[in-house]
Amino acid sequence: MKIAIGCDEAAISLKEIIKVLLNEMKHEVKDYGVYSAEPSLYPDTAVAVASAIAAGMHERGILLCGTGIGMAISANKVPGIRAAVCHDLFSTQRSRRSNDCQIMTMGARVIGVELAKELVKVWLDCAFVGGNSTAKVSKIMEYEQKFINGGC
């Protein structure tokens, strides 16, 4: 699978650990930064990753910051993208099975390394189930298009 990954300065160490895991799992990984501990603006990285996914360059993305929240908010500004904070097994599974999220976000200051690695494995293994969720995801995309086209 082609996976985009990115972080801010708060999550560089976790990003590097997740990259090793993804390579071990034989995924193709593109790193969108950041690469140093210098303060950065996480929306830049989030939008770069989300835009690349929306353009079809990658199948999924993983974004990391201090809490995961800012990355999710920023990535969700890109039309067609659904990103969710994944800090526990249930919400991680549901982000894929029920919401067809293409991006998972995690907070390096919120969860430990081993949990983060397990959640990545689970998230990559989950597929959108459809069923009752199909209409809900379609409705999200419908509202998104209405806002893009200038109305609600």
Rank of each mutant, 00 (worst) to 15 (best):
N132M: 09
D44L: 15
L22T: 11
A46N: 02
R82E: 05
V29W: 09
D88M: 09
N76V: 12
C7T: 06
Q102V: 05
V129D: 15
V47A: 05
H87M: 01
R82C: 03
E38I: 11
K136P: 00
F90H: 15
I69A: 12
T67Q: 06
V47H: 03
G70H: 04
V49D: 00
R97L: 04
L21R: 02
C152M: 14
I140C: 09
Y32I: 08
A4N: 10
A108T: 01
K19W: 01
G130Q: 05
K2P: 04
A55H: 01
S51W: 00
D88I: 10
M141V: 09
W123C: 03
V113P: 00
Y32T: 03
V85M: 11
M104D: 03
A72H: 06
E114W: 08
I140V: 15
C65M: 09
M71I: 04
A37V: 09
T105N: 02
V47F: 00
R60S: 13
G151L: 12
E118S: 13
L21P: 09
N149V: 03
A72V: 03
A135M: 11
W123D: 00
M106V: 05
S95E: 03
A48C: 06
I148M: 12
Y35G: 04
G80R: 02
N132Q: 12
D8G: 05
I12R: 09
I18R: 01
M104P: 08
V49L: 04
A72F: 08
K15Y: 05
G112M: 05
G61H: 01
A4T: 08
K19M: 13
R94Q: 13
M71R: 09
E59F: 11
V85I: 14
A11Y: 04
E24V: 03
I111T: 03
K136D: 04
A52G: 14
I3W: 05
E24K: 13
E114D: 15
A116Y: 01
R97G: 00
A48R: 14
A127G: 12
G80W: 01
Q93I: 15
S95R: 01
S98Q: 13
S40T: 15
A84H: 02
I12S: 03
I103K: 01
A4L: 06
I62T: 08
L21I: 02
I81W: 00
E142L: 10
D8W: 09
I81V: 15
G68M: 07
Q93M: 14
S51K: 09
A52L: 04
R82P: 02
K136L: 13
S40V: 15
H58C: 10
N99M: 01
V78M: 06
C65I: 06
G131Q: 10
R109W: 09
L89M: 14
V49R: 07
V113W: 02
F90K: 13
G112H: 04
C65A: 07
K26V: 13
Y42F: 15
K15T: 06
A127T: 14
E38K: 10
N23C: 10
M104L: 12
G150I: 12
V110K: 10
I148L: 15
C126T: 03
A116G: 04
C86T: 09
A108Q: 02
N99Q: 07
G150S: 10
Y35R: 08
